[in-house]
Computed example of a mutant assay.
Amino acid sequence: MPIESRYSSDLELFIEVDPTDRFGRYSDLLGSGAVKKVYRAFDQEEGIEVARNQVQVKNSIQDPPVIDLLIEV
Rank of each mutant, 00 (worst) to 15 (best):
M1P: 14
M1V: 14
P2I: 01
P2N: 13
P2C: 01
I3A: 01
E4W: 11
Y7E: 02
S8N: 08
S9N: 06
D10K: 08
D10N: 14
D10L: 09
L11M: 12
L11H: 13
E12K: 14
L13C: 01
I15G: 09
I15P: 02
V17A: 07
V17L: 03
V17Q: 12
D18F: 05
P19K: 01
P19R: 02
D21Y: 13
G24A: 06
R25Q: 08
R25D: 02
Y26P: 00
Y26F: 14
S27F: 09
D28I: 10
L29T: 09
L29V: 15
L30Y: 09
G31E: 00
G31A: 12
S32K: 08
V35Q: 06
K36G: 11
K36A: 10
K37Q: 15
K37L: 05
K37H: 14
V38K: 08
V38S: 11
A41T: 02
D43S: 00
D43K: 00
Q44N: 09
E45K: 15
E46P: 01
E46H: 06
E49V: 03
E49M: 00
E49K: 09
A51P: 13
A51C: 11
R52C: 09
R52H: 04
R52F: 03
R52N: 05
N53Y: 10
N53H: 11
Q54N: 05
V55F: 12
V55K: 07
Q56L: 14
Q56N: 14
V57G: 02
N59D: 10
S60D: 11
I61G: 08
D63N: 13
D63E: 13
D63R: 03
P64A: 01
P64G: 00
P65V: 00
I67V: 15
L69Q: 10
L70G: 08
L70C: 10
E72N: 12
E72D: 15
V73S: 12
